[in-house]
């Protein structure tokens, strides 16, 4: 296998993301926020398009799009006429559609649409790595510090509230952590498949875990394995990196589900 600089950077970046996405992904699974992750990720495309249109750093406009989304969602959730998944669906697909329309007006040489949608892990730079490991460490520190509160809330939100957990603040923190991870992971797996990196390793880990903590650790491990396998496939068969990583993660999930089913018989 070629171990050139870009390859090492890709590996380091991918594994860095997997280590953070695993534990955070557990909360996405426990709190059923998968659709919310999709909506955020699609909002990122709108943010990127906005950045190019306004000629400012797309990372900034993407962050702005996240904040806007979080506000819209919090505002809409209080109303009872429509279920949250319907609202999320409108927001999510609306953002994706508008993002795609906006990007179509732009010079294809300036905006690498496929790179944003499907990820371009082989172009990870040293600066990207610094962001991934710096931001990733921050996310893990916050998760660890608030672990008991977040876990109590995942078990039962009303009970957590009655026991004095600041539920609204915790919800906001989870939203922000997801935004950060999506921003960091955009280059690795792309906007369309980011949620998979959050939920598939966590779901795989569920097959083997008996405590929330082992589930978080195993999710990080399975994510790392998916990155290794996906990158290897991407290099060998020249397939796009993001889909290859997610395909590897789903393969791991299927094998573990089958193994688990056989053991239980």
């Amino acid at each position: 296998m070629l171990l050139e600089g870009f390859m090492l950077r890709a590996l380091a970046g991918g594994i860095g993301i997997a280590l953070v996405a695993g534990p955070l992904g557990c909360f996405v699974v426990w709190r059923r926020m998968a659709y919310f992750g999709d909506a955020l990720a699609h909002g990122a495309l709108l943010g990127v398009a906005l950045g190019f249109a306004l000629e400012v750093d797309p990372n900034l406009t993407t962050l702005a799009a996240f904040v806007l989304f979080a506000l819209i969602l919090t505002g809409l959730q209080g109303r009872q006429e429509l279920a949250t998944d319907t609202l999320l669906g409108i927001l999510s697909h609306g953002a994706l559609a508008m993002g795609l329309v906006a990007v179509s007006f732009m010079d294809p040489l300036r905006v690498d649409l496929m790179g944003y949608l499907l990820g371009d892990i082989l172009s990870v730079s040293v600066v990207d790595l610094a962001w991934i490991f710096g931001g990733g460490a921050l996310v893990l520190v916050v998760l660890a510090a608030l672990w008991t509160n977040l876990l109590t809330m995942a078990v039962h939100e009303e009970l957590a509230r009655a026991e004095g957990v600041p539920v609204a603040a915790m919800r906001l923190v989870l939203m922000m952590l997801m935004s950060v991870v999506i921003l960091l992971a955009m280059k690795i797996v792309g906007i369309l498949l980011i949620t998979a990196l959050l939920i598939v390793p966590a779901a795989t880990a569920r097959h083997f875990a008996r405590t929330p903590e082992t589930m978080a650790l195993l999710a990080a491990m399975f994510g790392g394995m998916a990155v290794l396998g996906g990158l290897f496939a991407s290099l060998t068969w020249d397939t796009p990196s993001g889909p290859s990583i997610v395909a590897a993660a789903v393969l791991l999930f299927s094998v573990s589900a089958l193994a688990r089913g056989l053991v239980q018989r």
């Binding site: 059923r32 039962h156 405590t211 929330p212």
Partner: peptide, 13 residues
């Protein structure tokens, strides 16, 4: 609380 149900996805004893 009323209607307490734990998601099967959360492994906790």
């Amino acid at each position: 609380p009323q209607r307490f149900q734990v998601d099967i996805a959360l492994p906790i004893t």
